[in-house]
């Protein structure tokens, strides 16, 4: 266990914890966009900046900084607040239409940005380039269907050549994890359309109720889990039904 101080309050956390986790354990709120506990720290959004005054003085992204014994963390000193406010102003300038960003900024007292508005063709931009979608697809799912494209002002996320991705398994984790709702996904009949990725994935029809459920590219799971082979396309409700029927039949033949 490691002992540190957050805003003058002592906290004890396990070894290997990040400063952000320790700050939240102390009950102190810090805004974040690119942080997800299920993924490796990335440090893209710069919203979690804090100042460390011991064992050395540093302005750090708390999500990617490991705790040390005797560390002193300050979240509200002007140096840290200024860094966070600057990041928020940049974000507000990039995505003025995003409710998430506006609310986050308003909480810190920021309502306008010194850096102007985005060019008209990007007026409704919602992507903050936090990389969560790219990382969840590569790191967690292992599909790596999307990645960052371009540099500087041109940097964005997409599939190779912006065409239908063969690597996408249609899980939708990218759309679910996106903090600003920039990724548009919808189910239309037996098609799951990931508009932002120009990708359409076919959904299997549940043989019992006709609902569309399992994305076709997930069929590899059948080989990984032979126990689900004969109920593969069934939707969860029909699987419950099937399990219940099995239980009733089993009870009839061998009562416990």
């Amino acid at each position: 266990m490691i002992n540190l101080t957050v805003n003058g309050q002592p906290v004890t956390v396990p070894d290997g914890t990040t400063v952000l986790q320790a700050v939240r354990a102390a009950g102190v709120e810090l805004p974040t966009l690119c942080y997800h506990e299920g993924l490796a720290p990335y440090g893209a959004c710069r919203l979690c900046m804090v100042v460390i005054t011991a064992p050395r003085h540093a302005l750090v992204a708390s999500c990617a900084y490991p705790v040390e014994e005797g560390m002193v963390v300050e979240t509200n000193v002007p140096e840290a607040a200024t860094a966070r406010h600057l990041a928020l102003e940049f974000l507000l300038s990039r995505c003025p239409q995003s409710d998430v960003i506006r609310e986050m900024a308003a909480k810190e007292g920021i309502t306008t940005s010194r850096f102007g508005a985005p060019p008209p063709e990007r007026a409704d931009e919602l992507c903050v380039l936090c990389g969560l979608c790219v990382r969840v697809c590569r790191e967690a799912i292992g599909a790596a269907a999307i990645s960052f494209i371009g540099r500087g002002m041109e940097r964005r996320v997409g599939t190779p050549f912006d065409v239908q991705s063969d690597a996408c398994i249609g899980c939708g984790a990218c759309a679910e994890i996106c903090p600003t709702g920039a990724i548009k996904m919808e189910d239309q009949g037996n098609k799951r359309i990931l508009h932002t990725w120009h990708t359409t994935v076919e959904l299997h029809t549940c043989p019992q109720c006709g609902r569309f459920f399992v994305p076709e590219p997930m069929s590899f799971l059948k080989e990984m889990f032979p126990e689900i082979e004969d109920l593969w396309a069934l939707c969860p409700e029909c699987r419950q039904q099937r399990a219940a029927r099995q239980w009733i039949e089993q009870r009839a033949t061998s009562p416990v």
Binding site: V136, I141, I177, L221, F225, I228
Partner: peptide
């Protein structure tokens, strides 16, 4: 749930449809 990314793979493999 803090670690969950909502990829629904667990839903796909649960033989009893017990996860949503």
């Amino acid at each position: 749930q803090r670690l969950c990314i909502a990829c629904r793979l667990c839903m796909m493999v649960c033989p009893f449809g017990a996860i949503h």
